[in-house]
Design a protein around this nucleic acid. Sequence first.
DNA 1: CTGAAAGCGCTTACAG
DNA 2: CTGAAAGCGCTTACAG
Lengths: 340, 340
Amino acid sequence: MRRRPRQADVAALAGVSQATVSTALGTSPARASLSASTLERVALAARTLGYVPDPVARRLAAQSTDLLGVYTFTDAFPVEVRDSYYPFLVGIERSAARLGYDLLLFTGTSSSRGGEAVQKVRLADGCLFLGRHVPEEQLQQLLDAGYPVVYVGRRTELGGRLSYVGADYVAGAAQVVDHLAGLGHTALLYVRGTDDAVASADREEGFWRAVAAAGLRGQVQRAYASSIDARALQSWRASGVTAVVTEENDANDLLAALLAAADDADVAVPQEMSLAVLGESGGVETAPRVTGFALPRQQMGEDAAALLVDLVTGRRTGPVQELLVPSLLVGETTGPPPPA
Amino acid sequence: MRRRPRQADVAALAGVSQATVSTALGTSPARASLSASTLERVALAARTLGYVPDPVARRLAAQSTDLLGVYTFTDAFPVEVRDSYYPFLVGIERSAARLGYDLLLFTGTSSSRGGEAVQKVRLADGCLFLGRHVPEEQLQQLLDAGYPVVYVGRRTELGGRLSYVGADYVAGAAQVVDHLAGLGHTALLYVRGTDDAVASADREEGFWRAVAAAGLRGQVQRAYASSIDARALQSWRASGVTAVVTEENDANDLLAALLAAADDADVAVPQEMSLAVLGESGGVETAPRVTGFALPRQQMGEDAAALLVDLVTGRRTGPVQELLVPSLLVGETTGPPPPA
DNA sequence: CTGAAAGCGCTTACAG
DNA sequence: CTGAAAGCGCTTACAG
């Protein structure tokens, strides 16, 4: 088992010092001042020996590994939610590869010593965070140390010091409302869930803003998730409501309940009543593709990785916060309102 | 921006030397000989300062990062083949997390300087390789250096020096044949593609072995992909063939051609003719689920990662080569032969 | 029981 | 134009 060659070996063969090998093979400005013949001899020696720099030593000495960390607080490849995580990873990997970085994947699960394992991300030049739980303390520590961090998803923790690339739920919600208004709906009903996440509040805000912008304020009602059943749907309809909008939640049970209620009440969707969700209809087994909006997940991943690289190289300085606009998904559950 | 604490800082606070901090915080046998009070003081000081060991320095000094490399020769998250790669990654991640390792993901694409980038995997304690192209030279170099490497998929390159966890295509093919024989088929036809990959040869070998074991040798024919059309199918049928077996290939065009030919020839599958594939029917848009076998991808990933860890820790020494048995997928394209 | 010292393989001022 | 030296933050014999 041959020991792998190091700079000292190359130096010996080329007849120069180890430091000269480092400069000759590196990219520092000092390289320019080396003579052409030295450069050549070093290059030849390196090739002959099959020299490849040790990335670990390089990182220790120069603080750079060309590695981007990706930290997920669950499995990085959760079978259940693969379809929602995967596109982020695809985007992240694209950007990273394009920019010459490799990915260092951390999964919260491998951490034996609790939160401290998060600090292992320092092996990479910077780190992307993905997922629900933000371990504030650990993140704080990274930020304090000036370590570049970007969250994929909007985060309001840490007093705005955190960089992120998130989705503009406000804009997404507005698109759905505008779509309905464009179809001629004026009497909408908003069914709110019980989730108090940032995203949830954002969706509702976007909804009301768009309602106001469309001049529909007076005609839009609001109901709670708990009230959804066939009777409720009938009464909403009787009161003139022509479209119901709900928010996406974890299992999309709100949406499922709404679809079931319509079915129970024999209300034809979308002929008698339009239905839309502020988000995606994933998880609901029903046949119809529900109108909503989709997060630009892959793009979010790409942007987040690109931003992280900018932070790492100092091209930009944090915190940078970016929101991407979701795209409207027109499904089979929305149509013009029934003739009055 | 506070500098992160290092052992020297902890040492100063605890009133001991830096080396003592290292032993106290580490797991070396020397730790046992430190006094309880020293251990305590160091632990306290470390906690107070929020000390976390620098993984890079640790790796350089001790040759260990608790990181497993994963090298794919394409994007790690190829959108096109996501369903075939993903399960491997899921399995790899599972094992790694369970064993206390994190994943270092390399994508051939990020390598600027050609093959040399492969050497960057050394940042990790060992590396898994995934995908078609084996850059023999680079792999050779890693092996020569005694660097632990495991391939996911059977590889015959490098004179058997390469450890791998592969799929037992021979056993998979045999399962399909046994299934058909069990249904009562005796006159089979094997349609071979033009692919010369190891896996392809293995499939055919398994096929013929199972045929021999079932005592069907004399009644089984062999045809080439190029001959597939409605006429051929008719003539095979006329000659008594009751089941056609083909191999899985990249786009599964062999299988697609076969299905199309049956359709053209108005041959009912499986009533008049059974159809099976030595592998999976992915990629073919047709409705019927085709009988075949599935690779235990996730398990392969898990085993490969576990093997790599064994190699890394020295619990096992390479090369270790392991084949996992695929599972039979009974689809809608096989049934009993038509009554003679 | 603990400390001083060397070394892992690099990078980067600084001399000359 | 090139070399000697220090240092990145650790681990690990080896003294004492």
